[in-house]
Design a protein around this nucleic acid. Sequence first.
DNA 1: CGACACTTTGAAGACGATCAACGCCGGTGG
DNA 2: CCACCGGCGTTGATCGTCTTCAAAGTGTCG
Lengths: 243, 243
Amino acid sequence: MIDYEQIAKSAAIFKGLSLDEKNDLLKDGKIRYLNKKEFLFRHGDPLLNFYIVCFGSIQLFRNNADGGEKTSNILTARDIICGEKIHQPCGRHQFNAVAVGDAVVIEFPKIWLKESAKKYSEFALNLVAEISNQASMAELEAEHQAAMSATQLVACFLQKLCLIHDFDPRGFELPYSKKLIASRLGMELETFSRTLPKLKECRIDVLGSHVAISGSGAIEENVCSHCSIEEDCHIHESFKKKF
Amino acid sequence: MIDYEQIAKSAAIFKGLSLDEKNDLLKDGKIRYLNKKEFLFRHGDPLLNFYIVCFGSIQLFRNNADGGEKTSNILTARDIICGEKIHQPCGRHQFNAVAVGDAVVIEFPKIWLKESAKKYSEFALNLVAEISNQASMAELEAEHQAAMSATQLVACFLQKLCLIHDFDPRGFELPYSKKLIASRLGMELETFSRTLPKLKECRIDVLGSHVAISGSGAIEENVCSHCSIEEDCHIHESFKKKF
DNA sequence: CGACACTTTGAAGACGATCAACGCCGGTGG
DNA sequence: CCACCGGCGTTGATCGTCTTCAAAGTGTCG
């Protein structure tokens, strides 16, 4: 039996709090087990709760005007959902949240967020940090979307994937369907599919759902994620040149 | 002589605070007068301050790899700059900030933000609200960028412009150069220029820098900004159909 | 007057979306 | 066990949109 609360406690939002404080905060949470493809909430549902992901992956997406769906993010353990909604007294969800595979989240009533922020100023600052990080990431990603080609985006995504999930670059399996990844990257499945052969030029081989990234050192250098923090290179020059 | 502090006091970030509290907070601020095209800070500069815009417009932008520049936002009176950086103990600016025309801002040392948030919990919540709004806006905009054509984006922008600056829709002058607007919308100047004639189809006439939006009622309905808050329509259907 | 930034317009090209056909696989039901 | 179906993924062909390059017109300011 996995201790889901234990995982939640290591979320960035509780950083710097004592164990007692964490326990105090978590006592208001309710563990929810989601089956594959089960919705956590839908676009238009009343906005009542705040969530911390403990296990599995949660896809956040919106329905396009033309039937398709655009995935804005795929969240995993220790990520938070709806933290940025703290100030909205009421309202409705702006997007859908669905479990990709089986998943577990802890659910808190929305007031909990505001009360916790008032009770522990450390928590409030953590929340601000999380939200602002989220904002920076969104902005950075928008920029990348605009500035990089589909091929670059895919290469970047695969490298980030490898880092985040701590996969072995020399060979790993895609954790999500290609359809989902394409949607996450804001492109059509066909476009995504067509980029894969091109990736060989930068030593990324994809066969089916198996990925191998050669030139080990290249990963840390090229991946875009680190750019957002301190570095000058928000789009890695040498990486861009390859396409 | 304009009372710039007075303008700053009406910023959303001070909402709900008493006059005494506002004065207490503002006493640490330093008024800075910027000439046209003067930089407030540059990409790479050490991240030291927080700013509130009191007068004029501040362009936030980044240099593309290929020499061009992408404007991420154009801020006006009562907007804040670098609020989302509160949690970064140190670091460098990720973008440039330059005065479009003459402008005035109030500058606060970065610690001021954190201390103020600790001193007045109301201020902390306002800050969270501002940042999360910013994040929502960025996300919404990214979605629009991806889903709408250049023509739609321009039409949307002009209508928002009209609302925000409280212009008379029947006739007003563009407050920024077309180059800046194009950059703000993430498109080339040529593309922007070419969309203008097309706008006549939806009753927006642009001649030089003069804009006239006919069909008065249409503005409130079509403009995209309101979508982000409560509405179901994140991309206005009837509006989209027109192009 | 000349330099320069801004804007418009034309023509060519690149890129991704769309439509369509097909292969693959897992599940369902006869 | 097999036939059928639906979801997924690949590949080809075509199309529309935006970018890019180029040239020329407009405006302002020294």
